[in-house]
Amino acid sequence: MSFTVVIPARYASTRLPGKPLADIAGKPMIQHVFDRATESEATRVVIATDDDRIREACQAFGAEVVMTAASHDSGTDRLEEVTRHLSLATDARVVNVQGDEPLIPPALINQVAANLESAPDAAIATLCEPIADASAIFNPNVVKVVFDYQGLAHYFSRAPIPWARDQWSDSGAERSLPENVTHYRHIGIYGYRVGFLRRFVTWSPAPLERAESLEQLRALHHGVRIHVGIACEPPQAGVDTEEDLVRLRRLMEA
């Protein structure tokens, strides 16, 4: 199994500027992500950034860095540019690991790559996990996914899908986990075939993508198949806010 990991790292985060360079246990956060990725079975690990400060920090710990344009509308556009910089073949596979996941298990990176290889009809592979807290189902920041018996996605949504009609019909009642169906939270790690990325960047955002602010809906709009696997290990939470950063520092320094 041959695949490349690409780690996008932007300095201009709205909620936490300079996030990739935030110190955690004596290392910048992006280095922790890089270390986890190099523990996977990837044949190559590349950091993609549009900021010289991040480039310098990454080169200092020996990472391969690709500078990308600052004008990209999405992370997928940035990823496609990286595949051109690296001259990857259209049948090559890349796994996009977010730069704010310093505790991502390497096993999840391997799982996404393996699932993409074993699902020839899918151009994208991603992961999910069962939801154990009913409040998460109704949280629009938690993206839900439904898929068929082959693991092929039907839809991703910020809304509570599937809707447990009989159990949740009383809007005044406390909503609990349904007994006869499992809800799944989408985990934002992706594997792609490079040929798909070449096509994706030529498509305009789809209506459902705009409505939900979920980029993967553009692929479904164009009939692209997305394989969804249940994560082999529970993922650790990433870093979105200052509070997340404090929590990760305490955990990793301990």
Rank of each mutant, 00 (worst) to 15 (best):
M1S: 12
M1W: 02
V6E: 06
I7K: 02
A9T: 07
A12F: 00
S13H: 14
T14G: 00
L16Y: 07
A22K: 12
A22Q: 12
D23F: 00
M29F: 03
I30S: 02
A37L: 07
S40E: 09
E41C: 10
T43H: 04
R44Q: 15
V45S: 13
D52C: 06
R53H: 13
R53F: 10
A57S: 15
A57E: 05
C58D: 09
Q59H: 05
A60N: 05
G62K: 04
E64R: 10
V65K: 03
V66N: 00
M67E: 13
T68A: 11
S71Q: 09
S74L: 11
G75N: 14
T76P: 00
D77R: 08
R78A: 15
L79H: 01
L79A: 10
R84V: 09
H85R: 14
L86A: 05
L88M: 13
T90N: 12
T90F: 03
V94N: 10
N96R: 11
Q98N: 14
G99N: 03
G99T: 07
G99C: 04
P102W: 06
L103F: 05
L103W: 02
I104W: 09
N110K: 06
N110Y: 03
V112W: 01
A114S: 12
L116I: 08
P120E: 13
P120V: 10
D121T: 14
I124P: 00
C128A: 15
P130L: 05
I131Q: 03
I131H: 03
A132K: 10
D133W: 00
A134I: 04
S135L: 07
A136I: 04
N139C: 09
N139D: 15
P140Q: 10
P140D: 09
N141C: 03
V143C: 12
V143N: 03
V146S: 07
V146I: 15
V146E: 06
D148E: 07
Y149L: 12
Y149I: 11
G151I: 13
A153H: 02
F156L: 14
S157W: 00
S157G: 06
P162S: 11
W163H: 09
A164P: 02
A164I: 00
S169F: 08
S171Q: 11
S171Y: 08
G172M: 06
L177S: 09
P178I: 11
N180G: 08
N180D: 15
V181I: 15
H186D: 05
I189G: 04
Y190Q: 11
G191D: 05
R193K: 15
V194Q: 09
G195C: 13
R198Q: 15
S204R: 14
S204G: 09
L208E: 14
R210I: 15
A219R: 01
L220R: 06
V228D: 01
V228C: 09
I230G: 01
E233V: 15
P235D: 02
Q236F: 13
D240V: 06
E242A: 14
L245Q: 04
L245I: 03
V246R: 10
V246E: 13
L248H: 07
L251V: 10
M252H: 03
A254D: 12
A254F: 07
